[in-house]
Design a protein around this nucleic acid. Structure first.
Length: 293
DNA sequence: AAGCGAACCTGGCTGC
DNA sequence: TGCAGCCAGGTTCGCT
């Protein structure tokens, strides 16, 4: 589900409730998601105060007053919701057992402010880990993570330098989290459509011979920032189940120009083409063969 | 070495 | 109504 804009939306939704609160009790309802939980998962969380809620790439980073960081990844179908702690009953015991997807509520954090943070993930591609903040950068998950697309490093020169000589399709290069971290299938399709670049073009064609940036590279870098920024403003995209933490739906899906619009008219000005669908390395690519070259 | 398909897992939708 | 088949926002592994 979640690409950078959705994860950032989740972060912003959780922050007011989580930051400053103390974790009183953690219900860990299974031993694993995509990976096993660390054996001391619960004991390293209970009694700790939450100092900050951050994000790196598609990871949520919860800093604790112990110096540990709780790392959370939502996989394809992970989501959080906030509920008021039920009074006069065992914490969390059955309060939300009646809600729709309770079968997939895998972790419940009970906070000192009488709120519950509930992690739900039907497909269980998400995962959680805890490491000391000082070791985060060297953690296997983060060691090879690429730049933040909304930071200052993303520009035409960066793309040209990283893509120079690459024959891999441009779409695949943009999905490579070790280059730019946070883009996924939706926003790559959207960015390429807005930049009018074919997903099939070799990534290397964005660099000149010496490795300098082409105008296309400059354009693409700017478009990536814009699309992600607009999506965050819209609260992300709600295709199936993504919601902001307060339960409201993101609405960026209404602004899609290519993704999930097979057979519909390209929305680029003066184009008049039809959005098509192809498969690249097993994933759907939506693009307009008329204007994306 | 790069690039592709399969794998992980469940649910929702389509079509027979 | 039922069931088979296909598809899904991510990532990693292993085989050409």
């Amino acid at each position: 589900m979640p690409e950078l804009p959705e994860v950032e939306t989740v972060r912003r939704g959780l922050e007011p409730t989580m930051t400053g609160a103390k974790i009183l009790c953690v219900e860990q309802r299974r031993t694993d998601l995509r990976f096993p939980f660390p054996p001391d998962f619960v004991s390293r969380l209970e009694g700790r105060k939450i100092v900050a809620m951050g994000r790196r790439a598609k990871y949520l980073l919860t800093d604790l007053d112990s110096g540990d960081v709780l790392i959370m990844h939502l996989g394809m179908s992970g989501s959080f919701r906030i509920e008021a702690e039920a009074v006069s009953q065992t914490p969390g015991a059955f309060h939300h057992a009646r809600s729709k997807n309770a079968a997939h509520d895998h972790v419940v954090f009970h906070l000192s402010n009488k709120k519950m943070i509930i992690y739900n993930d039907p497909r269980r591609f998400g995962f959680m880990d805890i490491v000391p903040r000082s070791e985060l950068a060297e953690h296997p998950l983060f060691r090879h993570v690429g730049i933040e697309p909304l930071g200052n490093e993303l520009n035409g020169n960066f793309l040209a330098q990283k893509f120079a000589g690459k024959k891999t399709p441009l779409k695949a290069a943009l999905l490579d989290q070790s280059l730019i971290a946070g883009l996924g299938n939706i926003y790559v399709c959207e960015a390429l459509n807005r930049a009018r670049l074919s997903p099939k073009r070799s990534a290397g064609t964005l660099a000149k011979k010496g490795g300098a940036a082409t105008e296309r590279a400059q354009l693409l870098a700017g478009v990536i920032r814009n699309v992600l920024g607009e999506a965050i403003t819209a609260g992300g995209s709600s295709l199936r189940d993504h919601r902001q933490a307060d339960g409201t739906l993101g609405y960026f899906q209404h602004s899609f120009r290519a993704y999930d619009r097979e057979g519909k008219p390209c929305r680029n000005e003066g184009c008049g083409g039809i959005i098509g669908r192809i498969v690249q390395s097993g994933r759907s690519t939506f693009y307009c063969a008329t204007c994306q070259r």
